[in-house]
Design a protein around this nucleic acid. Structure first.
Length: 626
RNA sequence: GCGCCUGUAGCUCAACUGGAUAGAGCGUCGGACUUCGAAUCCGAAGGCCGCAGGUUCGACUCCUGCCAGGCGCGCCA
C-alpha cells in the first residue's frame, strides 16, 4: 500500500464508509466553529445515503439546519463548509452543493473496495454488530392457546416474531424467544370437556345433538338465521372444540386409559382430560412451528404464575406503588357489551396514569383474577428474570390490549420497557377470490397444510414481504406456484446464481481468490461494479435499522434490490463479453469479479439466514417452464 | 360512540422515520439467447401518495378535521 493511499480505520465488525463521511462533516463543522465562521451544531450530524445516485454517496443537510442559528442562507453555509472541508484520510473524491443547500460527498472507490475485506473476513458473521450491547431482550410471540393446530394467521406472527428475534440477535442483543402457554384459563378447560366428549364417542357413545330443531345448512330468513345461531351455541356447549383433530387425541387417550373415565366428573374433565389434550396440542403446535423452522428457547406456562402466587405479588407491588384502588368503572361504550353491565366496585389498576384510556379491573365478579392480572404478573416475571427490553408480538385482535399492558410495565419499571408489535390480519385468497374458512364446509386451512404444500421458504417469504402492521393478502395459489410469479424464487435466485458462478469458475480453473484491494481498484472499473460494492457494504446498517425498527420486511427488499442489481450487471455480459464474471483470458479481472461475487453471495446468504429462508446452491427449473 | 392499524400504479406492496424527480414485483404492451443459468435482462404505458386544511426552506412521512376498510371496547384468553 502506498503511503498516500487513503487508509480507513478498521474496527473489526463495522468498517463503515458512512462513518468516514460523517467524520469529514463533523471535523469540518468543528473547524468552522473554531474559526468563528459558524455556530456549533447541537445534536448528531445527519448524513444519509441519497436515493438518487446523482446526489453523491453521502449527503448532509447540516447547512439547512444551521441556517437559522447562523443567520445565513443554507447555500452560503454549505459553501463555507466546502471551502473548509477537513479530510485527513483523503477519502472524498468530490464534494458539491446542491438543491436548497445539501452538501453531497462522493467517496473514492478505493475506500469502498477496502470495505470488502471485512465482508470476506467475517463471512457468515458479516452484518452482525454490537449496537444491542448484549442487553437482554425477550421476544415473545405466537403464544396461541393450546387448543388446536395453528392456522395461517398464527403463522404470520410466528414468522415475523422469529425474524425480529434473529435481527435483534444479529444486531448484538441477547435474545430469548419465548412462547407463553395459556394453560390456566377457561379455554383449556373447555378443551378438556371437548376431549371427554370425543373420548365417549370412541367408547361408543355418540356426541349428543342439541335438543333443538335442526336449522337449514344455508339459513336465509332472519328466523332461520336465529335458529342456526341458537343451534350452534347449544352445540358449542356440548362440544366446544368441534375440530376433528381431537378425535385422534381421544383415540390415544382411550388406548392409555381404557374406558374407565366414561363417567368422568367435570373436575376430572378439567384436569386429567385438559392436561392430556393440552400436552397433545402443544406437541402439534411444536410440530407446526418446527415445519417452519421455528424453535423457542423457552415455553412459559401461565400456571406457574398461579402456583407461585405471582399474581398476588404483582398486585402487591402495584399497590405499594400506589397504582391500585377500588372503584366503579363506567359502562362500556359499545351497545353489545353494555347490556349486562352493572355498576360494581372492584379492584382497579390506575392505567390512565400511564397513558391508557381507562383504568382496568384485575378481578372478576367471582373474585378470581382477570387475564390482565395474570399478564401483569407474567410481564413482571420477565422483568425479574433480567430482561431490560420486552417485545411482544401479538395478533391484531389483541390491539385493544396494548395500552394497558404497556401501562402496567411502565408502572413496574418507570419506563417504556415494552414494545408491542401488532401483526395485522391475514386474509386468505384463492383463485383470485377471498377465501372463507369453514370447518363445516371442510375448507379449513391449517398452517401445516400450507407449509407442506408450499414449503417453508415460500411461506416465510410471503409473510415477511409486508410490514407487520398492514393487512396481508395470503394467496394460497401463489405461494404454491413453482414459477417466477412466486416471490420466493427471486429472493433465493441471487444466491443460487453466485453459487453457480463459483462452480463454473472452478471448472475454468479459478479458486476463491484472496482479498486484494489493489486488484479490485485496478480491475473493477465499471460503474455497476462499484454500485454493487456499495450495496454489499450497506448491509450492516440495514440489519441495524431493521432490528431497531423491528421490521424484517426491509431485509426482503434489500435482497430483492441487490439481487436485481446483480442480475442486471450479469446479463450485460450476454451482449458485452468483456463484462462477464468468468474471463479465462483475463485471470486478474476474473479474480476481481469473483471477489465481488463472493461478497454478494455472503450478504445474500446472511440476509436469507436472518429471514430463516434457505440459501440454495442451485434451483431447479419448474416443469411448466421447460 | 371511543381507541388502535391501514388507505400510494390495474393488483400486491416499498419509500432508509422530515429531504431532492414517490419506487419494486405481478399483470399489460414492445424488445433481447449458437458461449458465464432467458427461473434472466432492457424498454414503454400506468400516480391529485383517500379528501380538505395546517406546521416549514421542504410533507407520502408530523398536527387537526372528515371519508373508507380492518381489529378491539369490565368478569374470553
Amino acid at each position: 500500500m502506498s503511503p498516500t493511499a487513503p487508509k480507513i480505520r478498521r474496527r473489526g465488525e463495522e468498517s463503515d464508509v458512512k462513518e468516514i463521511a460523517q467524520q469529514v462533516i463533523v471535523a469540518t463543522l468543528a473547524r468552522c466553529a473554531e474559526q468563528g465562521l459558524l455556530p456549533a451544531l447541537e445534536g448528531s450530524v445527519p448524513v444519509e445515503a441519497p436515493k438518487n445516485p446523482a446526489h453523491g454517496d453521502w449527503s448532509s443537510n447540516v447547512a439547512m439546519m444551521l441556517a437559522k442559528p447562523a443567520g445565513k442562507p443554507p447555500r452560503a453555509i454549505a459553501q463555507l463548509l466546502l471551502d473548509n472541508l477537513v479530510d485527513p484520510q483523503n477519502a472524498v473524491l468530490k464534494a458539491e452543493i446542491a438543491g436548497p443547500g445539501f452538501l453531497n460527498l462522493w467517496i473514492r472507490p478505493r475506500v469502498w473496495f477496502e470495505g470488502l475485506e471485512a465482508v470476506l473476513e467475517q463471512g457468515t458473521k458479516y452484518g452482525e454488530s454490537s449496537v444491542g450491547a448484549g442487553e437482554k431482550v425477550m421476544v415473545e410471540y405466537v403464544s396461541a392457546n393450546p387448543t388446536g393446530p395453528m392456522h395461517v394467521g398464527h403463522g404470520r406472527g410466528a414468522v415475523v416474531g422469529d425474524a425480529i428475534a434473529a435481527l435483534l440477535k444479529a444486531a448484538g442483543w441477547d435474545v430469548t424467544r419465548e412462547y407463553y402457554v395459556n394453560d390456566a384459563g377457561g379455554q383449556v378447560k373447555q378443551l378438556g370437556r371437548a376431549l371427554w366428549v370425543r373420548y365417549r364417542e370412541q367408547c361408543g357413545i355418540p356426541v349428543p345433538e342439541p335438543e333443538l330443531p335442526r336449522p337449514p345448512e344455508d339459513p336465509k330468513t332472519p328466523d332461520e338465521k336465529r335458529l342456526k345461531k341458537e343451534w350452534d351455541e347449544a352445540r358449542a356447549k356440548i362440544l366446544p372444540y368441534p375440530g376433528e383433530y381431537l378425535i385422534d387425541v381421544a383415540k390415544s387417550f382411550k388406548e392409555q386409559h381404557g374406558e374407565k373415565w366414561i363417567d368422568a366428573t367435570p373436575d376430572v374433565q378439567e384436569s386429567l382430560f385438559t392436561d392430556f389434550a393440552m400436552e397433545k396440542m402443544l406437541e402439534v403446535i411444536k410440530g407446526d412451528l418446527a415445519a417452519l423452522n421455528i424453535h423457542f428457547d423457552s415455553w412459559f406456562r401461565e400456571r406457574t404464575l398461579h402456583e407461585q402466587k405471582a399474581i398476588d405479588q404483582a398486585v402487591a407491588t402495584l399497590t405499594a406503588k400506589g397504582d391500585m384502588y377500588r372503584g366503579i368503572l363506567p359502562p362500556p361504550k359499545d351497545a353489545a357489551h353494555a347490556e349486562d353491565y352493572e355498576p360494581r366496585e372492584q379492584l382497579l389498576f390506575k392505567a390512565t396514569a400511564f397513558g391508557d384510556d381507562q383504568d382496568r379491573p384485575l378481578q372478576k365478579s367471582d373474585g378470581s383474577y382477570t387475564y390482565f392480572a395474570a399478564d401483569i404478573a407474567y410481564h413482571k416475571n420477565k422483568l425479574d428474570r433480567g430482561f431490560g427490553w420486552l417485545i411482544d408480538v401479538w395478533g391484531a385482535d389483541h390491539g385493544g390490549y396494548v395500552k394497558r399492558v404497556k401501562a402496567a410495565v411502565k408502572s413496574l419499571t418507570g419506563r417504556d420497557a415494552l414494545d408491542v408489535v401488532l401483526v395485522q390480519m391475514v386474509n386468505l385468497v384463492k383463485g383470485g377470490q377471498p377465501f372463507k374458512m369453514s370447518k363445516r364446509a371442510g375448507t379449513f386451512v391449517t398452517l401445516r397444510d400450507v407449509v407442506e404444500e408450499a414449503g417453508k421458504d415460500a411461506t416465510r417469504v410471503m409473510f415477511l414481504m409486508k410490514r407487520a402492521d398492514a393487512q396481508l393478502e395470503f394467496d394460497l395459489d401463489l405461494v404454491k406456484k413453482q414459477t417466477l410469479e412466486n416471490p420466493v424464487f427471486y429472493v433465493q435466485y441471487g444466491h443460487a446464481r453466485c453459487a453457480n458462478i463459483f462452480k463454473r469458475a472452478k471448472e475454468a480453473g479459478f479458486e476463491r481468490p484472496a482479498f486484494d484491494v489493489e486488484l479490485l481498484e485496478r480491475k473493477l472499473t465499471h460503474p455497476d461494479e462499484l454500485d454493487l460494492v456499495k450495496r454489499v457494504l450497506s448491509f450492516p446498517s440495514l440489519v441495524e435499522s431493521a432490528a431497531r425498527a423491528r421490521e424484517p420486511h426491509r431485509v426482503v427488499f434489500y435482497v430483492q434490490e441487490t439481487s436485481a442489481a446483480f442480475q442486471s450487471f450479469y446479463t450485460k455480459g450476454k451482449k458485452q463479453p468483456e463484462l462477464r464474471v468468468i474471463r479465462p483470458d483475463e485471470p486478474e479481472l476474473t479474480r476481481a469479479r469473483l471477489l465481488l461475487t463472493a461478497s454478494l453471495q455472503t450478504v445474500f446468504a446472511n440476509a436469507l439466514g436472518l429471514l430463516g429462508v434457505s440459501a440454495p446452491e442451485w434451483m431447479e427449473v419448474p416443469k411448466d417452464l421447460e
